[in-house]
């Protein structure tokens, strides 16, 4: 379905010579455009459907035929979940832990990458390789020792136990190092001759030159931390300490079959990342490509 014939003109259209474009501007092009938009609509339709369901009274959710638009907008599912589950607590937990993770990941990675890029110390190549190797190591394969370790540190069911292992990802270090490597060394050297400390060089020269990638990385790190499931699911025990993506899975079993409420929790949990994306669309794109190893 993906490489059906209509796609071929599309390729040409990416950088089309004029003759081709003229040919494409005729009917088939319009049809392909229409189908593309239709497909895009279908792609987000489940999200629309979830949202609409959350605005229905519980009985209407299973009414046949399903109504594509609620007859009366009803917030009772939201009122119910806010009153009967610790959704607000989960929200706070998620906001706090995701923000702390984002700030620390960026700060620690930046410091480390700066040293790797700008300070010529013995063993730095070796260290960089060690960090690069982390790309290939799946933390999921060593969940058991990780859990044992975090438990020995007394951090199971503790927000620090949730945060610390998430700081050990090498991606941001590698991206920062690549960016720092591109900055002409004269810039730093000039400042150092003037007596600036390394910290000053980093924060007043290198960082301002990299605000853009820092911002993109921040958003992508935040979204990833917000969405993380497996580790928070394993390390947190108390219902009140869960993050929202884990919390909403607990709610489900307590409700039984209650689609409006389940969808209301889903919508509530999704709102921050959806807004973060819609507002900072270009930054998210840039960050995602940077973390995949492609420069945007």
């Amino acid at each position: 379905m993906t490489s059906s014939p209509p796609l071929a003109p599309a390729v040409a259209a990416t950088r089309p010579p004029l003759t081709l474009r003229r040919r494409l501007s005729r009917l088939p092009g319009a049809v392909v455009t229409f189908l593309t938009v239709l497909l895009a609509g279908a792609w987000v339709f489940p999200l629309y459907w979830a949202f609409i369901t959350s605005l229905k009274p519980e009985n209407d959710t299973v009414a046949l035929p399903p109504k594509l638009w609620p007859e009366t907008i009803d917030f009772s599912a939201y009122t119910y979940i806010f009153q009967n589950s610790p959704v607000v607590r989960w929200y706070l937990n998620s906001v706090v832990s995701s923000l702390v993770i984002t700030v620390l990941v960026l700060l620690l990675s930046m410091l480390c990458a700066y040293a790797l890029s700008q300070i010529n110390f013995r063993g730095r190549r070796w260290l960089y390789w060690l960090i690069l190797a982390g790309f290939m190591i799946p933390f999921q394969a060593s969940l058991i020792p990780l859990f044992i370790l975090v438990n020995k540190l007394g951090l199971v069911n503790d927000v620090m136990g949730l945060i610390l292992p998430q700081l050990a990802a090498p991606v941001a270090v590698v991206i920062y190092k690549q960016f720092f490597d591109q900055i002409p060394s004269e810039l730093g050297d000039a400042a150092r001759i003037d007596g600036a400390s390394e910290a000053r060089v980093l924060f007043s020269i290198f960082l301002p030159l990299n605000w853009s990638i820092t911002f993109s990385l921040a958003i992508v790190t935040f979204i990833a931390a917000w969405n993380n499931f497996l580790w928070p699911f394993i390390v947190m025990n108390d219902t009140a300490k869960l993050t929202i993506p884990v919390g909403i899975t607990q709610v489900q079993s307590a409700y039984g079959v209650a689609y409006a409420k389940t969808m209301a929790t889903a919508v509530t949990a999704a709102v921050p990342t959806i807004f973060a994306y819609l507002i900072f669309q270009r930054r998210v794109t840039e960050g995602v490509m940077a973390t995949a190893g492609l420069k945007g």
Binding site: V156, N157, T239, A240, Q250
Partner: peptide, 22 residues
């Protein structure tokens, strides 16, 4: 009162709670 998922998930949570002392 907090309700956890019946069955395996419940007993898994109880055990991790016990070994972490929480």
């Amino acid at each position: 009162r907090t309700t956890q998922t019946w069955g395996n998930p419940f007993y898994t949570k109880v055990h991790t709670a016990v070994i972490s002392g929480q």
